[in-house]
């Protein structure tokens, strides 16, 4: 690919896919931007006048917005903490030689293949239901009053469900990283007098740091847009207790039929996601090129 000619040919050949991708991204983005400056409500058909920043000021001053931001952050951070810590511990466990290792590994990875809607429904109806759920039966067996998860702790319950889904992903990535750790290095540390905890802290954890970075980056992207789990369990309630930014945008555009405000919310979400991304890259991105 060195000559002028071949470079030009290469550009020509990749251009269809680049143009397609650009169109795919730019047209919806442009339309969203356009809608966000219109008064565009499906319940009031007719003229869609240009209203400037009105939709934005309406969306940003909505008390639900502040709650949604807090909930989004709590959800992302909560799931990240649970999956990274739990994933590391599970990876250590699965790295040990044991009988039935292959089957256990597949079982651990299985939740990742369950669709979010399905897993949330299973959790809602079979585990967390205060009348028929397994946890309710367990509580009754122990003589305790059943706990109504989605009424009393809606966000925590959703964090639990989403963590359950993402734990296998973290475990899988961290397990493969763990397996690339040179066993002689651990033995050397052992000879140097490092106990199991010191070995974990000084050898295993630094070795895993890069994999943990990858897990955090990838999961953050997906966790910012958690939606299905909220829709099928709490519908963002009670009140706004489990509404995140994605769900708020949905509620504006498809429950209140206010496309203009919904679009404004979408644009705000894009900007916030990019701010988070920049911070993440700054904070832990340097881990990747070391």
């Amino acid at each position: 690919m060195a000559t002028q000619h071949s470079r030009a040919a290469a550009r020509l050949m990749i251009s269809p896919s680049v143009i397609l991708l650009l169109g795919w991204m730019l047209i919806p983005l442009g339309l969203t931007l356009y809608f966000s400056f219109l008064r565009y409500n499906l319940l009031m058909p007719g003229a869609n006048p240009f209203v400037g920043w009105e939709n934005y000021s309406y969306f940003l001053s909505d008390p639900a917005f502040k709650a949604a931001i807090v909930n989004t952050l709590l959800l992302v951070v909560g799931v990240l903490v649970i999956t990274v810590v739990g994933g590391t511990l599970l990876a250590i466990l699965l790295d040990q030689a044991m009988w039935g290792q292959g089957i256990v590994r597949i079982l651990v990875i299985a939740p990742f293949f369950v669709m979010p809607t399905v897993s949330a429904l299973v959790w809602k109806n079979m585990f967390m239901n205060p009348v028929n759920g397994l946890f309710a039966h367990l509580a009754k067996f122990l003589g305790l009053p059943p706990f109504d998860f989605f009424a009393a702790a809606p966000l925590a319950s959703i964090i639990g469900i989403v963590s359950w889904q993402w734990l296998p992903f973290a475990t899988l990535i961290l397990l493969t990283a763990m397996q690339s750790l040179d066993s002689e290095r651990l033995e050397a540390a052992e000879m140097d007098g490092a106990g199991p905890l010191s070995r974990f802290w000084y050898m295993v954890l630094p070795h895993l740091s890069r994999a943990i970075t990858v897990v955090i980056l990838i999961q953050t992207i997906f966790l910012l847009s958690v939606f299905a789990e909220i829709l099928v369990t709490t519908n963002g309630g009670p009140g706004n207790a489990s509404t995140n930014l994605t769900y708020l945008v949905y509620a504006e555009s498809l429950l209140r039929f206010d496309v203009g405000t919904g679009s404004a919310g979408g644009v705000v979400a894009i900007i916030l996601a990019n701010i988070v991304a920049i911070f993440l890259m700054r904070m832990i991105g340097k881990n990747l090129d070391a």
Binding site: D182, E184, R185, G193, A194, G195, M203, H207
Partner: peptide, 29 residues
């Protein structure tokens, strides 16, 4: 346990700790 035997070992792969400087490697024990 290995640490209590007062023996030091040099491995074939050297088994250095790649995330530590030479100083920290030597100081680790």
């Amino acid at each position: 346990p290995p640490a209590k035997r007062r023996l030091a070992m040099v491995f074939q792969s050297y088994a250095l700790y790649p995330h530590m400087t030479v100083r920290k490697n030597i100081a680790f024990p």
